[in-house]
Amino acid sequence: MSRFDIPANIVEQTRLAHSIFLLTVNAPAIMDSANPGQFCMLEVQDDNSRDPLLRRPLSIYKTGSNGKISFLYKEVGKGTRLLSKRRPGEIIRVLGPLGQGFRLIHDCPSILVGGGLGVASLLLLAQRIKQPHRLIVLIGAKNASEIPTIEDFSRLTRYLHIITEDGSLGQRGVITELLNQTLQKITDMAQIYTCGPWSMMKAVYHMARKRNIPCQVSLEAAMACGTGLCLGCAVPKSNSQGFLHVCQEGPVFDADQVHWG
């Protein structure tokens, strides 16, 4: 397990939609050992104000050539707002790659289910799937502007299906409808990988379980360290015996392990 805490040079900060940004930094060491589903902790402030005090966790969205890694993030509060103000040429401290990512299961169709910014942890995975002809990507969002990076996925598979609540892109409706349509067509074994809002992942898991399809979920939790030091990132286990720790045992879990409530 190699992790690095490095001062990284910002090479790109692009606003893709109203509150969605793509941040690219130069971090060769992290790039080299990054696996799909892993994340980094970013020091968002550019001074010693210690406000906000904690770093912010972001999934590794892309790894580029020449040691670059990118993060796809949404401005939701103070930390992500400060992050969006950081400019190319500045230095940002990045700790990663952290956590246990997706376990790649080959030899069967892979169904990736992303809700909104949940797609941020799925692109690397889509790239590493060895049989692109058996890669199915389903993406759902409130509207088109929530998912501005669709082309990144359409390049990788012919089976990309999009659904939005307002119908501004793809079908109109919610992601579970897409998943239902897809599962109906699938006859052999498959593997579902999902990341998105809790309620969506819960619904995806229930549909998967009904058909006995294994399902890996990428969870979020409030984090202080991201490295297993504080035990703050707890999520209840399915057998109600204690807790999973999202930063260390996750963020990706077999959905069966999680107590969905």
């Binding site: 210690r50 406000d51 906000p52 005090l53 904690l54 939790a221 409030a222 984090m223 202080a224 504080c230 035990l231 703050g232 990132c233 707890a234 999520v235 209840p236 015996q241 204690g242 807790f243």
Partner: peptide, 16 residues
């Protein structure tokens, strides 16, 4: 000991 249920963390100005 299995500890308390989440959320277990909250950030405050210059504090945790």
């Amino acid at each position: 000991r299995s500890g308390n249920p989440p959320p277990r963390l909250a950030e405050t100005p210059c504090g945790l």
